[in-house]
């Protein structure tokens, strides 16, 4: 079992999953989201090269416009 953290909450995956596939499964519109992967924002062009592994920490950040 692969244990990861998403926005501070634990989550388990039964196999290594690509970041793109993970975001698609969440059904979020990731076109305008920012994703932090192990403490660093990943440029969208690199989503395809990230595979989630045990211990990874994800932060999915939506833009908020309120002031």
């Amino acid at each position: 079992m692969i244990k990861i953290q998403v926005n501070g909450k634990p989550r388990e995956l039964d196999r290594p999953v690509g970041l793109m596939e993970f975001l698609q499964d969440l059904k979020v519109n990731f076109r305008f989201l920012a994703v932090g992967y192990n403490g660093e924002v990943v440029p969208k062009a690199q989503y395809g090269s990230v595979t989630l592994k045990d211990g990874d920490v994800l932060e999915i950040v939506r833009p908020i416009g309120g002031g």
Partner: peptide
């Protein structure tokens, strides 16, 4: 723009008057 290259479309992210704060 490095953080959010694409703006959310209208209605995709609510504002404070719609969702509160």
């Amino acid at each position: 723009r490095c953080l959010f290259p694409e703006p959310p479309g209208p209605g995709e992210v609510p504002n404070c008057s719609e969702a509160g704060v």
